[in-house]
Computed example of a mutant assay.
Amino acid sequence: MTEVRFTHIGGPTVLIEFEGWRLLTDPTFDPPGRTYAFGWGTSSRKLTGPAVAAAGLGAIDAVLLTHVHHGDNLDDAGRALLPAAGTVVTTRSGAPSLPVPARGLRAGQATRLEAPGRPPIDVLATPCRHGPPLSRPIVGEVIGFALTWPGQAHGPLWITGDTVYHRALRRTAAGIRPGTVLLHLGGVGFPLTGPLRYTMTARQAVRLCEAIAPRTVLPVHYEGWQHFRQGRDGIERELRRAPERVGGLFRWLPAGTAEQVRL
Rank of each mutant, 00 (worst) to 15 (best):
D72H: 13
D72W: 15
D72M: 13
N73R: 12
N73G: 15
N73E: 14
N73W: 12
N73K: 12
N73H: 15
L74S: 06
L74V: 06
L74I: 00
L74M: 01
D75M: 04
D76R: 14
D76G: 06
D76W: 00
A77S: 14
A77R: 15
A77F: 02
A77H: 05
G78A: 09
G78Q: 07
G78C: 10
G78E: 07
G78N: 08
R79P: 03
R79D: 00
R79K: 13
R79A: 14
A80H: 02
A80L: 02
A80N: 05
A80V: 01
L81C: 05
L81R: 11
L81W: 03
L81M: 15
L81K: 03
L81Q: 07
L81T: 03
L81N: 07
L81E: 04
L82F: 02
L82I: 00
L82A: 00
L82G: 09
L82S: 03
P83S: 07
P83C: 06
P83R: 03
P83F: 03
P83H: 09
P83L: 02
A84N: 03
A84Y: 00
A84L: 12
A84P: 03
A85H: 04
A85W: 05
A85F: 02
G86W: 11
G86P: 09
G86K: 10
T87H: 15
V88I: 15
V88Q: 09
V89N: 11
V89W: 08
V89Y: 14
V89Q: 12
T90K: 04
T90W: 01
T90F: 04
T90D: 08
T90E: 06
T90Q: 01
T91R: 04
T91P: 06
T91N: 02
T91D: 01
T91L: 06
T91S: 05
S93R: 14
S93Q: 15
G94M: 01
G94Y: 00
A95P: 10
S97H: 15
S97T: 14
L98D: 08
L98C: 09
L98Q: 09
L98M: 07
L98A: 02
P99M: 11
P99E: 08
P99D: 11
P99G: 10
V100F: 08
V100C: 08
V100H: 12
V100E: 11
V100L: 09
V100M: 10
P101A: 14
P101R: 15
P101C: 13
A102L: 10
A102Y: 11
R103K: 15
R103P: 01
G104V: 01
G104S: 04
G104F: 09
L105I: 10
L105C: 00
L105T: 01
R106Y: 08
R106G: 13
A107L: 01
A107F: 00
A107N: 07
A107W: 02
A107E: 00
G108K: 05
G108W: 07
Q109L: 06
Q109E: 15
Q109D: 15
Q109V: 05
Q109A: 11
A110R: 13
T111N: 12
T111H: 10
T111G: 06
R112S: 11
R112G: 06
R112V: 15
